[in-house]
Structure formats: C-alpha cells, structure tokens
C-alpha cells in the first residue's frame, strides 16, 4: 500500500513521462498547502515562535525594556536549582497533579454515568447547566463568592462548622487547608467540561451492543464494565492526557484570586511561580527557563501516558 501511495503522489504515476508546466496542475498540487497554511501560520506564530523565543530568552538576563540583553548561559537554570522558592513550587505542583488529576478524570466520569440514565429527562439538561455554568463564569466573579464562603470570621463554611460545634478554620490562610481550597475551587470551575466530553462519549456508544448484551442476560454492571467503559476509553484517555497537561494551568485563577500563592507560598505551583518571575519580578530570562522546564516535563508526562496507558485504550 505504501508503495502505491508513493507512486501516485500528486495524482500522477511515477512511471509517467514528465510533462510541461501546467497552471492547473500547480493549482491542484498547491491547494492542500494553501488550505492548511493559515492554521500552520497561526500555530507557528502563536505556539512555536513563542516556544523557541522563550528557549532563546532563557539564556539571557533581560526585562523586556532594557535595550541590551545580557547573555548568562545556563545561569537562569542553575539558579533555579538553588532557589528554595522554586523547589517549594515544585512540591505544590505535584500535590495539584496527584490530587486533581484523579478528581478531574473520575469525578466527571461518575457524574456522567449518573446523568446518562436520565438522558431523556428534562432534569439532565438542568444538571448539565448547573455543572457546566461554573466553567463559563469569570474567576474574578466566582472569587467574590468563594472568598465569602471561606472567610474565617464571616464566611458560610465556618458558620456551618460553628453551628455544629466545631471550631473556626482559617481556610485560606492555613497552609494545611489553603491548597485544598484551591483544589476545590479549580474542580468546581473545570469539572463541567470533562463531564460534557464523557456524556458525548456515552451518547456515541452504539445502542445495538447494549441491546444485544441485555438480551444475553448481562446486568447493568456487566454492560458498564464490558461494553460502555471500553468504548469510551478513547475519551477517557483524552481527558487523562489533557488534564495532566492543563491541571497546573487550571488552578492558576484560583491561586491568583484566592491566595495569591500563599499562605507562605504553599499554594504557589510552577505556573504561578513562572508568572511571578516574569510579570511581578520582571525576570524574563528566569521565567523563560521555567517555561522550558515546564515544556519538557509536560512532554515527558505525556510520553509516559502514551507508553503505559494507551495500550489499554479500545479504539473500536
């Protein structure tokens, strides 16, 4: 098959004699490239150029404004290794990954399975709206509500605790609870998107399979285990990969608005550290070095998932 394809590249056989120049043929051959060119240009300008430029800047001491960039070699990288604040941000980064990835992957799956049986009911639409609406609410707006809920002296959560005889908790200013507050808010904010993906995947499972299994006497659990879940594993895998990639971005808004990285930097993850370096401290070289590290760490994590998880995915 490969051989045939190679021989017919450009719509003509490789054994045919060469013909003269033809505008028609040029147009035919160049059309696919022209059609994908806008997308390639956009990707190049907004993804690959920044990536390479960041890598370049990571070898300089610069603040975007000074006319001269000072070449510092690997200093921005070696400095990070000695930086206690960078190491602390790595700790928080791992906590977010370990805590949020299972939550963001499995909780929406569970909710989707609960909603699926009532798909014909109007209630499912109401649940979808309730669960998805946080995704589209601006963090600045949501933060007002969450700050009120978490307020240690006037907040809803502590009022409930005190009513039940418990003592007050400093939710956002205690290092043991603040990171979980960020995780809760980030989950609330992002769960709706993955839920929609799972619902769409369940919708796409052919009804024939379910019907045939039911006729053969399979119970609800057997259908779930042997038919539904295997058939939605491509979506499950997609959600897993994209969640691992984006989880530390997802918490950025909650960190920024609720804790500003505190208390005592305990909620500062690597993305927030990058933001602080670049846009609070104006250390563009150091921020670029962090971004390069984030890039390679993300590629590595993604590769691990493809290497060890993808083999369990059923592509149908």
């Amino acid at each position: 098959m490969d051989t045939v394809r190679k021989q017919t590249v450009g719509g003509m056989s490789a054994t045919q004699p060469r013909r003269g120049f033809s505008w028609y043929r040029l147009r035919e051959q160049s059309m696919p490239y022209l059609l994908v060119a806008p997308l390639l240009i956009l990707i190049g300008v907004f993804i690959y150029y920044p990536l390479f430029y960041s890598s370049y800047l990571s070898f300089f001491d610069w603040n975007f404004v000074r006319p001269d960039k000072d070449f510092v070699g690997w200093d921005n990288y070696t400095r990070l290794l000695d930086e206690p604040r960078f190491r602390r941000s790595l700790n928080a980064t791992w906590i977010y990954i370990v805590a949020l990835v299972p939550i963001q992957v499995f909780l929406p799956l569970g909710l989707a399975l609960l909603l699926w049986p009532i798909r014909k009911s109007r209630m499912q639409g109401a649940y979808r709206v309730m669960l998805f609406s946080p995704t589209v609410i601006a963090f600045s707006v949501a933060a007002v509500m969450w700050l009120w809920i978490f307020n240690p002296l006037q907040g809803l959560l502590n009022h409930i605790l005190i009513d039940f005889g418990y003592s007050r908790v400093n939710w956002l200013s205690d290092r043991d609870t603040a990171i979980w507050c960020v995780i809760i808010v980030a989950t609330w904010k992002t769960i709706g998107f993955n839920l929609l993906l799972y619902l769409a995947a369940l919708e796409a499972v052919p009804g024939d399979y379910i019907e045939a299994a039911s006729l053969d006497g399979a119970n609800h659990w057997q259908i779930m285990k042997s038919i539904r879940f295997p058939l939605i594993t491509p979506t499950f895998f997609f959600v897993l990969v994209t969640t691992v990639i984006s989880v530390n971005d997802d918490v950025f808004g909650a960190i920024n608005v609720l804790t500003d990285g505190g208390p005592f930097e305990s909620t500062t993850n690597i993305v927030y550290y990058l933001y602080q370096q670049g846009f609070r401290y104006f250390q563009i070289g150091a921020a670029s070095a962090v971004s390069v590290i984030v890039f390679f760490a993300t590629v590595l994590l993604t590769w691990v998932q493809f290497r060890f998880v993808e083999k369990h995915v059923h592509y149908g």
Binding site: I47, L51, T242, V290, F295, T302
Partner: peptide
C-alpha cells in the same frame, strides 16, 4: 499534546 505542551512552555514569550 505537543501543541498544548508547547503552548504551556511558551507562556512567557
């Protein structure tokens, strides 16, 4: 994945 990761890596620039 690579595209998204690249986007992450390029936040600063």
């Amino acid at each position: 994945g690579a595209a998204v990761a690249a986007g992450l890596g390029g936040i600063t620039a």
